[in-house]
Simulated scan of single mutants.
Amino acid sequence: MIELDDIDRSILRALQRDAAVSAGALGRRIGLSQPATWRRIRRLEETGVVKGRRLRLNAEALGFGVTVFLGVKLARKGKISLEDFERAVSAIPEVQTVEHVLGLYDYRLRVVARDLPDFERVLRRRIMTLPGAGEVEANVMLSEERRPGPIGAD
């Protein structure tokens, strides 16, 4: 585990809010030069604290008005069925995240769809036909509040 100081934490909080912020703008905000800020960001990336920066798309603005969290229990378990399921589910464009979890279900999926009939089509034709797919529980997202990660707020 890497030791983080207050400046590192400030950088991480800022990047959680806006990963596209420039090192210069971020440095001005926290009182560091652009090169010093960039070196710290690179160190955080190289040590694995920052695993990458992603662009978040607004699914609703793109016509995907429904987000559903699926709990999927595999019908049969084993290394081959896990790998087959993961490979197949990752190829479905509507599936945004695939998480292998411990608990009532084996996988937690985040699925986007244009509307409920579109979600039903994705569920019946794509997800339920996956190798090893068994029981499924769906939870439709009503709203979302983005919260800061474990670094906390300013």
Rank of each mutant, 00 (worst) to 15 (best):
P148N: 11
L26D: 00
R110H: 03
F119Y: 10
V95W: 03
L62A: 12
D6A: 15
L130F: 00
L55P: 08
R28C: 10
L44N: 02
I127V: 01
H100L: 13
R28Y: 08
L123N: 06
S33M: 01
A133K: 01
R114W: 04
R56M: 15
R147H: 02
P93D: 05
R146D: 07
I7A: 11
L104T: 12
Y107I: 05
T67Q: 14
G48Q: 03
E94S: 04
P117F: 00
L102Q: 11
M141W: 07
L57T: 04
R114H: 03
E45S: 09
L109F: 03
Q34W: 02
R110F: 07
A59I: 13
V136E: 04
R114S: 03
S10M: 11
L44W: 05
R146I: 01
P117T: 07
A75V: 15
E120H: 06
L4Y: 02
Y105C: 09
L102T: 13
E135V: 13
V95G: 01
E60G: 00
E137P: 12
G65F: 14
G27E: 10
L116A: 12
A19L: 10
G149D: 01
V98Q: 02
R76V: 06
P148V: 04
G132W: 00
L44K: 05
A61W: 09
V49Y: 03
D154G: 15
D8F: 01
G78C: 09
L70Q: 05
D8K: 05
F85W: 05
N139I: 14
E94N: 10
R53S: 14
V111R: 06
G152H: 07
V112S: 06
A61E: 05
R9M: 10
T97G: 13
V49M: 03
R76L: 01
D6K: 13
L116C: 10
S90C: 13
E46N: 13
I41L: 12
D8Q: 01
D154M: 08
D118E: 12
G71K: 07
L62C: 07
T97D: 11
V50D: 06
K79H: 15
D115R: 09
E144W: 11
P131M: 05
D6L: 14
R53M: 02
V98L: 11
I11G: 00
D106M: 04
N58D: 08
A91C: 07
I92E: 02
A133C: 06
R147K: 12
R17I: 07
E137L: 10
F64H: 04
L57G: 05
K73T: 12
P93T: 06
M1D: 06
D6Y: 14
L70M: 03
D84T: 07
K79S: 15
T67D: 12
V122C: 10
S143K: 14
E144N: 09
N58Q: 03
G152E: 00
L142P: 04
T47G: 13
G71N: 11
H100Y: 15
Y105V: 08
L44D: 00
K73L: 15
F85L: 09
Q96W: 06
M141N: 10
R126N: 09
I2N: 02
A75C: 09
G48I: 07
L104D: 04
N58M: 05
